[in-house]
Deep mutational scan, measured.
Amino acid sequence: VKKMAKAIMADPNKADEVYKKWADKGYTLTQMSNFLKSKTAGKYDRVYNGYVIHLD
């Protein structure tokens, strides 16, 4: 998940494709939050927020 999150950060155009894969795998927002937690607070906030919007 972190590898794909980094791919989104490097190229935001990949976001919809990645979010669809995550949704197809049934990842919940709680799971995504836990996967994307980082020592650098807020590092993956943009990715998480994008997934929230995708699921909505």
Rank of each mutant, 00 (worst) to 15 (best):
D24H: 10
T28F: 00
Y27L: 08
L55Y: 04
D45T: 07
L29E: 05
M32G: 02
M4N: 06
A10G: 08
K3P: 04
L29Y: 05
Y44E: 02
A15V: 05
Y48E: 02
V47H: 02
N34M: 13
V52L: 10
D24G: 10
R46T: 14
S33T: 10
P12I: 08
K25C: 15
K37A: 11
K21T: 14
D24M: 12
T40H: 14
A7Y: 09
A23I: 05
K3A: 13
D24P: 00
K6P: 02
M32K: 00
S33C: 13
D24C: 12
A10I: 11
A7S: 11
L29N: 04
P12M: 07
A41W: 10
T40E: 11
Y44D: 00
A10S: 11
A7H: 07
H54W: 15
Y19H: 03
V52C: 09
Y19A: 00
T28N: 07
N34C: 14
Y48I: 13
A41Q: 12
M9W: 05
K2I: 13
A15M: 06
V52R: 15
T40S: 10
N34L: 12
K43V: 07
S33H: 12
W22S: 00
K43P: 05
K20P: 03
G26A: 06
E17S: 11
W22H: 00
V52N: 03
M32R: 00
S33D: 08
D16P: 14
K21S: 14
I8Y: 02
V52I: 10
E17A: 12
L36N: 00
K37H: 11
Y27T: 00
K37P: 01
A15H: 05
V18Y: 09
K37E: 10
A41I: 12
G42P: 03
K39V: 09
Y19E: 01
M32Q: 01
D45L: 09
G26T: 02
K37Y: 10
T30Q: 14
V18S: 03
A15S: 11
Y27G: 00
N49E: 15
K25Y: 12
A15C: 06
G42D: 07
G26H: 05
S38T: 09
K43G: 05
M4D: 15
Y44R: 02
A15N: 03
D45Q: 09
A23L: 07
P12N: 06
F35H: 05
A5R: 02
K20L: 06
Y51F: 07
H54R: 03
K2S: 03
A5M: 04
K2F: 04
K21Y: 15
W22M: 01
K21C: 15
Y19R: 01
T28Y: 02
I53Q: 14
M32S: 00
M4I: 05
K21I: 15
K2C: 14
V47K: 01
K2E: 06
T40F: 10
N49I: 12
Y44T: 00
L36I: 02
G42A: 05
I8G: 02
D24I: 09
I53M: 13
Y51V: 02
T40W: 09
R46S: 15
H54Y: 15
Y51Q: 01
Y44Q: 01
G50S: 03
T40M: 09
K6M: 13
A10H: 10
A23M: 09
E17H: 08
K39D: 13
Y51T: 03
D24T: 11
N49L: 14
K2Q: 07
N49R: 11
Y48A: 02
L36M: 01
T30P: 09
K14A: 10
L55H: 02
I53A: 15
A5Y: 03
G26S: 05
D16N: 12
K6E: 13
Y27H: 03
N49W: 15
Y51W: 04
D45E: 09
D56P: 02
V47M: 03
Y27F: 10
K43E: 12
Y51R: 00
T30C: 13
Y44W: 08
T30W: 11
K25D: 10
Y19N: 00
A15K: 06
R46G: 13
W22P: 00
K6T: 06
Q31T: 06
D45N: 08
N34R: 14
E17K: 08
I8T: 03
A23Y: 09
M9K: 05
A7G: 05
M32T: 00
P12Y: 09
D11N: 12
A23T: 08
D16M: 11
G42N: 09
S33A: 15
K14P: 02
K3N: 10
K20Y: 07
Y19C: 04
D16V: 11
R46F: 14
K14E: 06
G50R: 02
M9R: 06
D56W: 14
T28Q: 03
D11M: 06
K21H: 14
F35R: 03
L36T: 00
E17T: 09
Y19L: 01
D56L: 15
Y19S: 01
